[in-house]
Simulated assay, not measured.
Amino acid sequence: MKLAKSKMSLLFATFFICLFMSLAASAQMEKAAEINGVVISKEQFNKELNIHLDRVARQGRQVADDQLAALKKDILEGLIEREVLYQASQKAGIKIDEQKIDEQLAAIKKRFPSEDEYKTALGKMKLTENEVKLQILRGLAIRALIEQQISSKIVVTEAETKAYYDGNPQMFKQPAQVKASHILIKVDAGADDATKAEARKKIETVQQKVKAGGDFAELAKEYSEGPSNTRGGDLGFFRRGQMVKPFEDAAFTMKADEVSDIVETRFGYHIIKVYEVKPAQTLAYGDVKDKLNQRMKQEKVEKDAGQYIGQLKKDAKIEKYL
């Protein structure tokens, strides 16, 4: 289980992690760390820790005792790094427009079904909207700093992207894919013969309607018992290994616009219609070069940002109390 985030992912964590961060504590409060005279309180550290622990718990997992110490260390380092970055942004004279803060706040509010639920969430986190806006401001300032000091100075040349493409052909291979829909009549694999016979009779009835020229999507909406029925049975494109074997074996032997015979899987009985077949291929350089350029630039940004943060920390007066 990968519980500890990388340095960069901690710096650019989602809003909901940042949201729980409290304001910089006064020197009189119990300290977790102090950076150039600015205190990170133990309360702030504990809030950040609890966010991570709660998130893991919601995924049905727990943090093992031997992983907790490493997690605490990473959280403290993340708080320190965000603080040195914010201080650097202020030294660089970075200012954030109030309009940008308001836009981010509006985007956050849209994540909630209503204004009341948004306010309730703030109340549970013991935050005011002004505190939320302050955290948005700090996050935008850090992003602007990274853009100013690092991202804007990085260039990935055409020669670099082409060399990467040519040197890593396996990364650009796309396996065969099929676009298909299906109609499913459910029956448990362990059902008795009578129950299976009843389900089989249902799918045979549907099969006759398909053979008679019935619209497959409409029949799927009417008869299919699978979750894709509301989409007319549409499963989109899939590769081998994404469906149960009897289903994929049938689908990958069919041509476009063909309809299968009845296929039995552990879920029940299926009729499959294939709409499109994409053979295995290697993506052309022209089709991937822009995305590849963005990816390579981001990798350089992360590498250089790590070095930049390391220098900021080296130049700062940092005291840790945990």
Rank of each mutant, 00 (worst) to 15 (best):
M1N: 03
K2S: 15
F12R: 02
A13Q: 09
A13H: 00
F15H: 06
F16E: 13
I17E: 14
A24L: 06
S26R: 08
S26Y: 12
S26K: 08
A27R: 05
Q28D: 15
M29N: 08
M29A: 14
E30Q: 04
K31Q: 12
I35F: 02
I35E: 15
Q44F: 11
N46W: 06
K47H: 08
R58H: 05
R61I: 04
D66A: 06
L68I: 04
A70M: 07
I75R: 02
G78K: 03
G78S: 13
K91W: 03
I94W: 00
I94M: 04
K95P: 00
Q99L: 09
Q99K: 07
K100L: 12
D102N: 11
D102F: 06
L105N: 03
A106I: 05
F112W: 09
S114E: 12
E115F: 02
E117M: 08
E117V: 01
Y118N: 14
Y118G: 05
A121M: 07
G123S: 12
M125I: 07
K126D: 07
T128F: 03
E129T: 05
N130H: 05
V132G: 10
G139I: 02
I142M: 13
I146N: 05
E147C: 02
E147A: 09
Q148V: 03
Q149D: 12
S151H: 04
E158H: 00
Y164R: 05
D166R: 01
P169E: 10
F172G: 05
P175T: 09
A176L: 07
Q177I: 07
H182A: 10
L184I: 11
I185F: 06
V187T: 13
V187C: 15
A189E: 15
G190W: 14
D193T: 12
A194H: 07
A199K: 06
R200H: 08
V206W: 05
Q207F: 06
V210P: 00
F216L: 13
E218F: 02
E222F: 07
G226T: 07
P227N: 15
S228K: 13
T230N: 09
G232E: 05
G233D: 09
L235H: 15
R240L: 13
Q242C: 06
Q242M: 07
K245G: 01
K245M: 04
K245E: 14
F247P: 00
E248D: 14
D249A: 11
F252M: 12
T253H: 10
K255Y: 03
K255P: 00
A256M: 15
A256Y: 10
E258Y: 02
D261L: 09
I262D: 13
I262S: 10
V263C: 09
E264N: 08
T265E: 13
R266S: 14
F267P: 00
F267E: 15
Y269A: 15
Y269K: 11
V274P: 00
V274H: 08
Y275P: 01
E276C: 04
E276H: 14
A280Q: 11
Q281I: 01
L283R: 15
Y285T: 11
Y285K: 10
K289S: 10
N293L: 02
R295Y: 01
R295K: 03
M296D: 07
M296R: 07
K297G: 00
K303Y: 05
G306D: 12
Y308V: 01
L312H: 03
A316T: 06
A316V: 11
Y321T: 12
Y321G: 08
